[in-house]
Design a protein around this nucleic acid. Structure first.
Length: 567
RNA sequence: CGGGGUGUAGCGCAGUCUGGUAGCGCACCUGAAUGGGGUUCAGGGGGCCGACGGUUCAAAUCCGUCCACCCCGACCA
């Protein structure tokens, strides 16, 4: 490709809207262009890179028995009502009507469609397992797209679905995918950390995410360096310390004028925050929820949402709190009736807590569970934090930030049952297929690579996914037969299957080198009057500082070998 | 959806407070010089000033409505 004809200009200035490094670099280097909020065009360089990543993904899927197909993006809304996930996805779904006023959705994922597809052609255990997958565009009306390609509303995803005869089969399929995923990240030149995750709207129990560690990552990972366990903070558990445990004393009221926060009350009474009980109020699918947790712990809203099986969870407003008859700042579950009370199990680790008295400027001493109040649900709903103790080995937990570049789920049978995806087993019994699903955002992975592989000059592509292998630069092309030398050389490289971007412009050396560094192709070759005087070509890796001169007549062989060694 | 902000040339911005008919840098075109890390000089093209409505002799500028986009929070590949 001639640089002078390449669609997509490099920009000297950073576009105003670009915040993350990958967004800035991909826009400046001419890989992508925004059309609307969370909607991007891939320009030629970006698209070539995307197809390179997709090829690696295909190879790894095919290697473990995946079979590629293509499912419609346009889907009947009824399918989503049938699965029961219409409400779980909510406003994320793009919906539209056709000319006959039928409701349609633009597919955010394809469990519904694939289950319906597989149901029609699989009737026997002999057909299982099947691992269909596709690489296709998805639509999600995200509340807030951001970070360029990191979080968009229209995106290209690889989604594979596994259908097995039983749980043991699912485990085998799941492990295959874990393996394939690790190969994919490695081949793209980045490291991914596999962490336990919440399954969210997709459903199912077990799920893992593959995180690319990066400062700008949206997710927080809680991990233990000692035993290696790692979880998304949404899922993470930590060992809760025991609060002081004395024989239970009787409840007394104490005046706490103006002391609303846990810190104020604890300091006023002279106890640590862990010796208090905190009340937090939520609205779950419209129902008022009274949450009780020990004063030193924050609530994990994802855990709470899962416990309540709620599609929508938010903090209650002040108005809603007072409408429920609660004295904000001085509330406790003691004496509360006709409101659902959910407690974190930390309130059992200790005795004689300080809690609100449910009247202004007053708290209670020596509150004990279950002696003084009842709860409707009790579970772990606390947020784990860095510095807490690991539940497995007791070491101090660390916190990292990451980009979610893959997410896999053990779905089980809930969708198979809803869609009638049954098969006959060896004994002639009809059983639901056991499902798993496995997603990788291809565009997000591309951005994640840039987040991890760049320097202050630009992107540094690994050979495996670079849009071209070689950046051929001529300096002073109209002098000393520079262009005449470069042209056949360019053709010869293509003949040897080396993909070349040829900067044929008559621009200053600095301009060309800066563009080369920005775009980040692995190997740069420079031909100039100076190199031709010595009958050579300058060869420089993007990832290295030093360049070297290679004799003209041996350079093609040299390049072929060099690229092979780094593939 | 709540809070904050911005819309002026392909990109980055000034001009808006104080109304008088649009400007700078980059990019682009022409020419010349230079010659290995965004070089210099000269000339040039390009604007429905987000949209609609209002005030005014006159609106990028004042008022209203709407739209788009960005940032901070709740969702996810």
């Amino acid at each position: 490709m001639y640089f002078s004809k390449l669609l997509g200009k490099t920009l000297r200035e950073v576009p105003a809207e670009a915040d993350s490094i990958s967004h800035q670099l991909l826009v400046r280097a001419g890989f992508i262009q925004q059309l609307a909020t969370g909607v991007y065009s891939y320009l030629p360089l970006g698209w070539r890179t995307l197809t390179r990543i997709a090829r690696i993904v295909r190879e790894e899927m095919d290697r473990v028995g995946g079979q590629e197909l293509q499912l419609p993006a346009l889907q009947p809304l009824e399918l989503w009502q049938q699965s029961g996930r219409f409400d779980a996805f909510g406003k994320i779904l793009f919906t539209l009507k056709d000319r006959k006023e039928h409701d349609l959705v633009l597919g955010p994922t394809h469990e519904e469609v694939i289950t319906d597809t597989v149901r029609r052609s699989v009737q026997s255990y002999r057909d299982l397992p099947v691992l269909p997958y596709q690489i296709q565009v998805k639509f999600r009306d995200e509340p807030r797209p951001r970070g360029g390609l990191l979080r968009v509303r229209e995106f290209i995803m690889k989604d594979l679905y596994s259908f097995d005869a039983d749980e043991a089969g699912l485990d085998v399929s799941y492990d295959k995918m874990v393996n394939a995923y690790q190969n994919i990240y490695r081949r793209c030149g980045i490291e991914a950390m596999m962490v336990e995750a919440d399954s969210g709207a997709i459903g199912g129990k077990t799920s893992h995410e593959f995180m690319i560690i990066a400062e700008t990552g949206e997710d927080e990972i809680i991990c233990c360096e000692k035993c290696g366990s790692a979880s998304n903070i949404e899922k993470a558990k930590s060992a809760k310390t025991k609060a002081k445990t004395d024989p239970q004393k009787s409840v007394e009221e104490i005046a706490t004028p103006g002391m609303k926060s846990i810190e104020e009350v604890a300091a006023f009474v002279g106890v640590p925050p862990g010796q208090t009980i905190k009340a937090v109020f939520y609205i779950a699918d419209g129902e008022f929820i009274f949450v009780v947790i020990r004063g030193d712990l924050p609530v994990n809203e994802v855990k709470l949402k899962n416990l309540l099986k709620a599609a929508d969870l938010r903090l209650a407003t002040e108005a809603e709190v007072s409408a429920a008859g609660i004295v904000a700042g001085f509330a406790s579950p003691v004496g509360v009736k006709s409101i659902k009370v959910v407690a974190d199990d930390s309130i059992m680790l200790g005795t004689n807590f300080i809690a609100g008295a449910n009247k202004p400027h007053t708290h209670l001493k020596n509150v004990n569970y279950p002696r003084d109040f009842k709860v409707d649900l009790m579970a772990d709903i606390a947020l784990a934090r860095a510095g807490d103790a690991c539940v497995k080995c007791g070491a101090s937990l660390k916190s990292l930030r990451g980009i979610e570049a893959g997410h896999i789920f053990k779905l089980g049978i809930f969708l198979s049952e809803k869609f009638g995806a049954y098969f006959l087993d060896r004994d002639g019994a009809s059983r639901p297929m056991v499902m798993g699903c496995y997603g990788i955002g291809i565009g997000r992975l591309l951005a994640a690579v840039v987040e991890q592989q760049h320097d202050d000059k630009g992107i540094i592509w690994p050979v495996s996914i670079a849009p071209y292998h070689v950046h051929l630069c001529t300096l002073y092309p109209d002098k000393n037969k520079v262009a005449e030398t470069a042209e056949p050389f360019y053709q010869e490289l293509w003949d040897r299957n080396i993909e070349v971007l040829y900067d044929d412009r008559d621009a200053a050396p600095g301009v060309k080198f800066n563009d080369a560094d920005l775009i980040g192709l692995p190997l740069r070759l420079t031909i100039s009057p100076r190199t031709l005087e010595k009958q050579g070509v300058e060869l420089k890796w993007r990832s290295e500082k030093q360049s070297r001169l290679v004799p003209l007549n041996g350079v093609v062989e040299e390049v072929v070998k060099a690229l092979q060694s780094r593939r």
